[in-house]
């Protein structure tokens, strides 16, 4: 990804016009750029999850006096975080949709009903109507390793099963107590 963040001299023109920065005090694109330039990976908690709040509106980039490719820079920081396992759960779910259905937003009963009402095919002529097409998507996502990237991670399962065990123990104890 083409990045030219070395050109940034921290004037803050980016943050001053950022619509997300206006809504979220934690979203400061100028700070993210400087942290990236300085290689402050130990401060990652100051970046994640906030770096994922960017709407990619390009307002910062349009306003940058140094022609820094800010959006490319944000996307590159995100990609690095994702490959270190810092993907947000909500984004992982969107990724799983792509793996399972070939669409980030797959069809549902309401959409199918509306389609028929409009005289369109119940399923659009995309991978949603093509087993072969969907199998091609799955092959490609396996080749790029994307299916692994968005797979449920094991530690999360452990946490969940630990929580379930706790819940089970609690319930059993409650039953015993109530029984007594």
């Amino acid at each position: 990804m083409s990045s030219n963040i070395e050109r940034c001299y921290q004037c803050g023109q980016c943050t001053s016009v950022c619509p997300m920065g206006e809504q979220e005090q934690t979203y400061r694109i100028r700070r993210f750029l400087q942290m990236e330039k300085l290689g402050l990976e130990t401060e990652e908690s100051m970046m994640v999850p906030f770096i994922f709040y960017c709407t990619t509106c390009y307002r910062c980039q349009d306003n940058c006096p140094q022609d820094v490719n800010l959006v490319d820079a944000v996307l590159a920081i995100r990609e690095k975080a994702v490959h270190k396992g810092k993907m947000l759960e909500a984004h992982k779910k969107v990724g799983q949709m792509l793996v399972n259905y070939g669409h980030a937003v797959p069809t549902n009963a309401d959409a199918m009903e509306k389609r028929v009402h409009l005289g369109l095919d119940k399923r659009p002529p995309t991978v949603q109507a093509s087993i072969e097409g969907l199998s091609e998507i799955k092959t490609l996502l396996r080749l790029t390793g994307f299916d692994e990237l968005v797979a449920e991670s094991k530690p999360v399962e452990h946490v969940e099963s630990a929580a379930m065990m706790h819940q089970t123990c609690f319930t059993q104890q409650q039953v015993v107590e109530e029984g007594a």
């Binding site: 990619t56 944000v74 996307l75 984004h91 980030a104 002529p125 109507a129 097409g133």
Partner: peptide
Amino acid sequence: LEGASCCPAPGVFRSFD
């Protein structure tokens, strides 16, 4: 465009991989 998929979304998937 039979068998087409998600484009895939520019800000989301481009920044994942």
